[in-house]
Structures are given as C-alpha cells and as structure tokens.
C-alpha cells in the first residue's frame, strides 16, 4: 500500500487538532465539554479516516447518491479553505472574548469604590442580625 503526501498532511493536521482538543478538555479549560470534544473527534477523525481509507468515500457516495469521486484538487482546495475559515473564525471568536473580558474588567474597576461601599453596608446589616 503506497502512502501519498496528502494523506500524511491530512493525518498530521487532524492529529494536531484532535490532540489540542483532548489537551484542552483534559485541562478542563473553560468551554470545553464532552460533546465539543466528540464533535471535534468526529470532524477531524472523519477527515483522517477518509484520507487513510479513501474507499470509505465509496460508502458515503452510495449513501449520498453521488457516483463520482471528488478529484484531488477539489479535496485539497476544500481542505485548505475549510482549515483557514475554521482558524479565522476561531481567532475572531477569541478576540471577541478578549474584548468582552477587557470591557468587563474596566467596568468593574470603575465601579470598585461603589461595590466596596455597598459590600460594607451589607456586612454591617448582616452583623446586626
């Protein structure tokens, strides 16, 4: 069985993405759930599976009803476009979260004195009871 370059590339990328997912899940990073890990394993594992066992697409094509296999250029193109979109959207998401975090910290800092004042009032009331 001969190994093609695209198979190595796809398996490599899929391995990195799956490894990252498992690492983030194992570290219990915020937002990492079992379902999210499963979806990641399914998407990237599926890509690796199809690249290692291209005949698997035959079953898929039977189910979907498309006779011809997708040619190599299309697959490579779609893979790169998908990868770039995935990374871009992830990066945008991360930036959005960072902006929210900065906005939140600023809001809390500005209200710090008022929060402390109310906190002391609440403590006083609790002591009186």
């Amino acid at each position: 069985m001969s190994v093609h370059l695209y198979q190595i590339v796809v398996v490599g990328i899929a391995s990195v993405m799956i490894f990252q997912g498992i690492k983030e899940f194992a570290k219990r990073e915020a937002g990492q759930t079992v379902l999210k890990l499963c979806v990641r394993l399914l998407v990237w594992g599926g890509m690796a599976l199809i690249s290692v066992y291209p005949n698997f697409t035959w079953y898929l094509s039977k189910i979907i009803g498309i006779e011809d296999n997708i040619n190599a250029v299309m697959v490579t193109g779609f893979l790169f476009v998908f990868l770039i979109i995935f990374k871009l959207l992830s990066a945008i998401e991360k930036i959005e979260q960072n902006i929210s975090e900065i906005t939140r910290k600023e809001a809390l800092n500005e209200a710090h004195d008022r929060i402390q004042k109310l906190r002391l009032e609440i403590l006083e009331l609790k002591k009186k009871q």
Binding site: S100, A107, L108, I115, L118
Partner: peptide, 20 residues
C-alpha cells in the same frame, strides 16, 4: 451599583459582569 460597558458586548456579557 451602576457599571458601564464602554462598548456593546451583548446581553450575556452584561449579565456576566453583573453577576461578577
């Protein structure tokens, strides 16, 4: 206790800030 997000971040972000 009035807090202000300088820019609009969405309802979820505002609720989270309030809970914090």
């Amino acid at each position: 206790v009035a807090l202000r997000h300088k820019i609009n971040r969405g309802k979820g972000a505002a609720v989270k800030t309030g809970i914090m």
